[in-house]
Design a protein around this nucleic acid. Sequence first.
DNA 1: ACATTAAGTGATT
DNA 2: AATCACTTAATGT
Length: 214
Amino acid sequence: MRGKLYEKYTYVLEDKLLEEVEKNGQYRKLDAGITLIEIGDELTHMPLILTGAVRIMNKDENDNELLLYYLEVGDTCAMTMSCCLGGQQSPINAVTEQPTELVLIPLGFMEEWIIKYKSWRAFVFDSYSVRLEEMLEAIDILAFHNMGSRLYKYLKDKAIIHHGNVLNITHSQIANELNSSRVVISRLLKKLAFEGKVISQRNRIEVVELMAKK
DNA sequence: ACATTAAGTGATT
DNA sequence: AATCACTTAATGT
């Protein structure tokens, strides 16, 4: 883990702190599609993402999923931070979206490090505010935009996370993540395809805007 | 050839 | 925008 940790975080965290992370954190290398946290799980560690991406979702009582945001390289989980003080239960669900490498840090270090390392303090507050901004944007889209633009933003975000412009996904999977229905997604995708924003085939959606430019 | 799963469509709320 | 009921198309065995 040492190499990647230093590669991704030297400019964010001070050297002494990186040594501590290395000493106290557990390195994990995970395939895509692994569930890290279920709603209700007790939070005991906070993750630092080294490579890959993690999808953070909410779920209602009927198992409808709602995508909240992604954790990418350099990110940590604001939810974990907000819960860390009182060993609370997780309000969210976390699944690896890609093969992911991360470091798990026991929550006990949070408080100590905030006092000891100014770079940690900055990192924590920073990720907190970044997340908050993202959530505000998400709420804005939920409240004031129609499904169509929500879908398009979702496709673009997902494509970017996957480092490409092609998504292998079905309409009903999308519907689940956006808490909509398959029929609606199909119709909107057809419209997007007609507008030339997207190329849609069975199990395959291409985001035109993000095509590799040559 | 058959079954299964993904996607398209019209009508209704 | 969601749901229903049904059709059509693609894919796996």
